[in-house]
């Protein structure tokens, strides 16, 4: 279901890379996280991709990678994945003005990874208690409560 084609995206976003993957439609990789709001606003109004199905992050070697799965509500079939890699301390502009559910998704990303979203109306932990130390989904998260399974698994 790829009604949005690579050429269309390349025409509007010349600096971004566009490819296909086994993930979710085409993958649009942004260069910097500063263009996130602009790109999403254009996708929302220009391409009709107005449903944020999932918004998550990943701890990879270079830092964090934000992954945003978007769907077009008009035909409920066109999908697009937006990805951008950011550094450990970088802040991300909030998308809560564009999508209603972004507020909670961003709070969850902050809770699990520690990524700060600038401009977010209410950035605090959502799943863990308020006084929790650390951000669990980081790869360097140490916690003695996380009992490691004994034995060698591979």
């Amino acid at each position: 279901m790829k009604s949005v084609r690579c050429e269309q995206l390349k025409a509007v976003f010349p600096e971004c890379a566009c490819s296909a993957s086994g993930g979710f439609g085409l993958v649009l990789t942004l260069r910097t996280v500063k263009e996130l709001t602009g790109v999403c606003a254009t996708l929302h109004s220009g391409f009709g991709l107005d449903v944020m199905e999932d918004y998550t992050a990943r701890d990879c070697l270079e830092g964090f990678e934000l992954v945003l799965h978007m769907v077009r509500s008009l035909d409920n079939q066109t999908h697009l994945t937006v990805k951008v890699v950011l550094g450990r301390e970088e802040q991300v502009p909030t998308l809560s003005g564009l999508f209603g559910c972004a507020q909670w998704y961003e709070r969850e990303i902050f809770d699990m990874f520690g990524i700060v979203f600038s401009g977010h109306p209410d950035l605090r932990r959502i799943l863990l208690p308020e006084d929790w130390q650390g951000h669990p989904l980081r790869k360097d998260y140490q916690d003695e409560k996380l009992l490691k399974r004994p034995g060698n698994l591979s």
């Binding site: 199905e53 999932d54 990943r58 992954v67």
Partner: peptide, 23 residues
């Protein structure tokens, strides 16, 4: 939905669970 990222090993690098009740 499940969003799985694999790095070639026997454990997922990232397992993201998209749950309908959250949205």
């Amino acid at each position: 939905g499940f969003y799985l990222v694999s790095d070639g090993s026997s454990k997922p690098q990232r397992c993201r669970i998209r749950v309908p009740s959250f949205a």
